[in-house]
Amino acid sequence: MTTLKIASWNINSVRARAIIVERFLCEESPDVLCLQETKAHNDVFPADLFNRLGYTHHALNGQRMHHGVAILSRVPLQEHGAHDWQDNGEARHIGVRLPGGVRLENVYVPAGGDVPDRTVNPKFGQKLDFIGRMTRWSEGLREPTLIVGDFNVAPLECDVWSHKALLDVVSHTPIEVEALGALQSAHGWVDLGRQFIPAPQRCFTWWSYRSPDWTRNDRGRRLDHMWASPSLAPQATAHAVHEPCRAWEKPSDHVPLVVELSL
């Protein structure tokens, strides 16, 4: 058996944050890096950066200025594919098959706007519909799969700095939590974050740029996730949230997650 180390990070522009991406890869040395919100079309993606660091296998689904996902790897990737769960051509998913046969799916769920009501905020409806399409896909899934990314939902009361204050705030509303729960149940997905950091322990992956000192008020949310198929979950041997990255120079508002799988 071999151990595969897989990282996931909403980088909020891969070109703008190339320095911290390189730092993270040099310090943590994952075998595979999944990025969300790359904000770079495939033809301007900084492939040379990753090639120089040994990540020579690329699966890209980019979009100019917005969205975009990528998988960069030191091990071969096969069977690249992208689902249009947004149903409008936005670049929000890329999937591959890893050595050993496991599927790896990298997803960037829409944020959903500011008002949690689809009748007045179409973006919120698009987010719920996106999760609904993922749910129907999950219902038919029959192979061991790891799905990672920015789900833009903090499902548990302890996944946000204040459950009471955020009940009506997009990312933690009951309707979003219910939708994500239906997605999880559709395949019996195992939430690796909470498998290794059980609730109600503190576990945040995102802090707003609006906060003048994110460390002082610690108003975080757990928006980023790693879920494994029931048959794959026992092969997860470690999981970490790299919170110090939020304090790096010109940081993303999200921090990386890393899981280790014995395959």
Results as ranks from 00 to 15, higher is better:
L33G: 00
V190P: 05
G100Q: 14
R222E: 01
D43Y: 06
L261G: 05
V259P: 02
G220W: 15
L180T: 02
E90R: 12
V148I: 10
G140A: 09
I20F: 07
K127T: 00
L49A: 02
K5H: 06
W137C: 00
G68S: 05
E157M: 10
A179D: 04
S73G: 09
G125Y: 11
G113V: 07
H58V: 00
Q201S: 06
T205H: 12
A240S: 12
P230H: 12
G149K: 11
P230Y: 15
R133W: 11
I197K: 15
T56S: 10
L128I: 05
F196G: 02
H41W: 12
C26N: 15
H254S: 01
M134Q: 13
L141E: 03
S29I: 03
N42R: 10
V255F: 07
S29H: 12
M226D: 08
G100L: 09
R64H: 09
I131D: 00
I6H: 10
Q86S: 14
W189Q: 03
W9S: 01
E90Q: 13
D159L: 12
A247M: 11
L35E: 11
F124Y: 11
A247D: 12
A233I: 02
E260K: 13
N121H: 08
N152W: 14
H66S: 05
T38V: 02
I94Q: 15
A82H: 10
A165I: 05
T215Q: 14
L223F: 15
V148G: 01
N61I: 04
G113M: 11
S13F: 04
A236G: 05
M1P: 08
I175Q: 15
H93Y: 13
F151R: 04
D253I: 04
V120L: 07
I175F: 07
P76C: 11
V96K: 12
W85E: 04
N217C: 06
S208L: 07
A82L: 10
N121A: 04
F45Q: 08
I20A: 11
R219L: 09
L141G: 00
P256H: 14
L167P: 01
E260F: 08
A91R: 12
G140Q: 11
G100K: 13
V21R: 10
L261T: 02
A16P: 04
D224M: 07
P251H: 09
W9F: 00
E27W: 06
F196T: 02
P99A: 10
T56P: 01
I94E: 11
R216E: 13
R210E: 05
N42K: 06
K127D: 03
R222T: 00
H225K: 09
T205F: 13
P256G: 04
R142G: 01
G89F: 03
L77H: 09
R97M: 14
L4D: 06
P198R: 12
A199Q: 12
P174V: 03
P116S: 08
P230M: 13
D84F: 04
K127V: 00
T119W: 15
D84H: 03
H172Y: 11
